[in-house]
């Protein structure tokens, strides 16, 4: 990774966006240093896509200030566009054009020098050369994603904004994709990537969790888990569903999640939780062990917590 840059790549304060009276992004502040991979997580409709669109100049924030790559979000949308690679959530390249035609169109819109060479080079490095003359519409999910990434990095942007790039892509293609992301970050490119996959979140340097239009928590995976203040127990055994039913609704228990033959039970107040679990601890058919909460436990807890506070903000 290249040395830390004094000014952050993304530096925004109190960004808000409303659609017809409904606040979609509520006073979001975010600072992303250069060369970092930031994972953007949160339930559907939490405002991730809107935030990304505001960052690349596709949407004008209703309130708030900030810079992206040192350019003002409101005044310099054009300059931001030149240095940002934005990958939309839905595949948005021209399905009736081939891979090569799509890439060469993008190269020309960015007015790149020697566009044909650049297109050849990117196709080589992304292993798209064999399929150069295949129509984009006929590609499978993984290849579409590769084409989209190739088109996004073609103009050598300093910042990549990827909106759920791996949705609907098989595990192998996802792993390749993440290797590529890390390679790019290593070259000094900053990446903000939204995802629903926990193991992808764990591959990020930092994560930002949004729910109900607000930024809830950010930091490394460990920091985020720590901030949840959760205590988690794992139970193994039979009749787990009975146990789950009897614990449901208990105020001492924050989240309950079955994982195959195990059940994750988390709560924020250890003393209260122990009291609630005590009657079951002696059951011989169950094996109890204290574990660290997973990112998922933490997120589900955050979501429940803020859902209660946020009312019907969803």
């Amino acid at each position: 990774m290249s040395g830390p840059s004094p000014s952050p790549v993304i530096d925004v304060h109190n960004l808000s966006k409303r659609y017809g009276g409904k606040t979609v992004v509520d006073r979001l502040s975010l600072t992303v240093p250069r060369g970092h991979i930031y994972g953007f997580l949160g339930p559907n409709g939490s405002g991730k896509t809107t935030t990304i669109r505001m960052l690349c100049g596709l949407l004008t924030p209703d309130e708030g200030e900030g810079t992206c790559l040192g350019f003002d979000l409101r005044r310099d949308a054009e300059k931001i566009k030149r240095q940002v690679g934005y990958m939309t959530q839905k595949f948005s390249f021209w399905e009736d054009m081939t891979i090569h035609e799509n890439l060469s169109f993008v190269a020309r819109l960015f007015e790149l020098d020697r566009p044909d060479e650049r297109v050849e080079a990117i196709m080589n490095s992304m292993q798209l050369t064999d399929r150069a003359s295949q129509l984009a519409g006929s590609l499978s999910g993984g290849w579409k994603q590769r084409l989209a990434l190739a088109a996004c990095i073609l103009h050598e942007p300093s910042l990549l904004l990827l909106d759920e790039p791996t949705a609907g892509v098989d595990p192998k293609a996802r792993r390749d994709f993440w290797d590529e992301i890390h390679r790019l970050a290593d070259q000094g490119i900053t990446v903000l990537v939204s995802t629903h996959y926990m193991e992808e979140a764990e591959r990020c340097h930092s994560i930002v969790y949004m729910a109900y239009s607000r930024l809830i928590v950010q930091g490394t995976v460990e920091e985020v888990i720590a901030q949840s203040h959760l205590v988690t127990w794992t139970v193994e055994g039979s009749h787990l569903m009975d146990l789950m039913r009897s614990l449901e609704g208990n105020p001492a228990i924050a989240t309950l999640a079955p994982f195959g033959t195990r059940l994750h039970i988390s709560g924020t107040d250890e003393a209260l939780m122990m009291k609630a679990l005590a009657p079951y601890m002696n059951n011989e058919t169950l094996t109890w062990s204290r574990t660290t909460p997973t990112l998922e436990d933490a997120f589900i807890h955050f979501m429940a917590q803020h859902g209660e506070r946020g009312g019907k903000a969803a």
Partner: peptide, 13 residues
């Protein structure tokens, strides 16, 4: 309709 407009708008044209 096909979402390519978002792509076009995100590019400097």
């Amino acid at each position: 309709e096909q979402g390519t407009m978002e792509n076009l708008l995100s590019m400097p044209v």
